[in-house]
Design a protein around this nucleic acid. Structure first.
Lengths: 138, 138
DNA sequence: TTCACAGTGGGGAAAAGTGGGGAAGAATGG
DNA sequence: CCATTCTTCCCCACTTTTCCCCACTGTGAA
């Protein structure tokens, strides 16, 4: 659980920072997540995602909509000298991130959650961790 | 969310400006979007689109119609020294852009929306962002 | 206790965004 | 063809936001 200061800044835990490639050079892209959370992509991971987006057709309405949804709130941003990233107000609002934030490093990106929202999300999932495990991993 | 002043000018967010190629030289083409919004193409992207249009058949009524729809309101325009672009009244009317505008950088162009219209557009879609994501991205 | 590192807080310069005056050019009417 | 009005756009000035930098606190290890 980490704090968000009045300027909307979040310190990236140093444990996580270690896993971010050096080529990302402290540059990230924040955007909305698929659930009610934010995704923080190191720039190199983001570039991969972006080139996938470019393969979509801009003449297909569903594709357009998806591209918009991802890019609408996307912001490039660099860590400051204290390894903090600042989260634009609109994104904080989307994920309802106020004073505290739950930071989860997934494989290719980092997720930011309102701690309460995250707890509710976990509870709302009917399937247990074990049963997902057995289904997903084959 | 950005403002439109009384003269119909819109500041391009500097974050977006960075992604516009230098060869575009602050020159854009505004035209109507496929939805009820406006498309703002950097001139180099516009030239690509235009050469695609040239490949359409002017003997096919559908093609003619499409070409007209795009070109009818298209207008070339340059950023002023404050990096603003001015949107002709007819286009503002088409997209119902009044005092406020939502600016979305998609990959090859920039979209301008009336904020309310955009919200309605998002809501009107039956399929969730999450489910499009899992379908579209593989 | 001291050092090092992680995290927090805030001041202030620089950049971004907004508003409007007025010259230059285009359109309209006589 | 000239005069008047309207529009466009260039430039200056003000406000707001961003972000860079410095300082402080707390914790754990030596």
């Amino acid at each position: 659980m980490y704090s968000v200061d009045e300027k909307g800044r979040v310190s990236l835990p140093s444990k996580l920072r270690k896993y971010v490639s050096t080529e990302a050079n402290d540059t990230f892209v924040v955007t909305r997540g698929f659930e009610k959370c934010l995704f923080l992509y190191p720039i190199d991971e983001w570039n991969k995602l972006e080139s996938n987006l470019r393969n979509l057709s801009s003449y297909d309405p569903q594709h357009r909509r998806f591209i918009r949804a991802i890019l609408e709130l996307a912001q490039e941003s660099q860590l400051d000298s204290q390894a903090r990233i600042s989260i634009p107000p609109e994104l904080r609002e989307y994920a309802n991130i106020l004073n505290e934030v739950r930071i989860i490093g997934t494989l290719d990106k980092i997720e930011l959650w309102n701690p309460k929202v995250y707890e509710e999300y976990k509870i709302s999932q009917p399937e247990s961790y074990e049963s997902i495990a057995s289904r997903v991993m084959r």
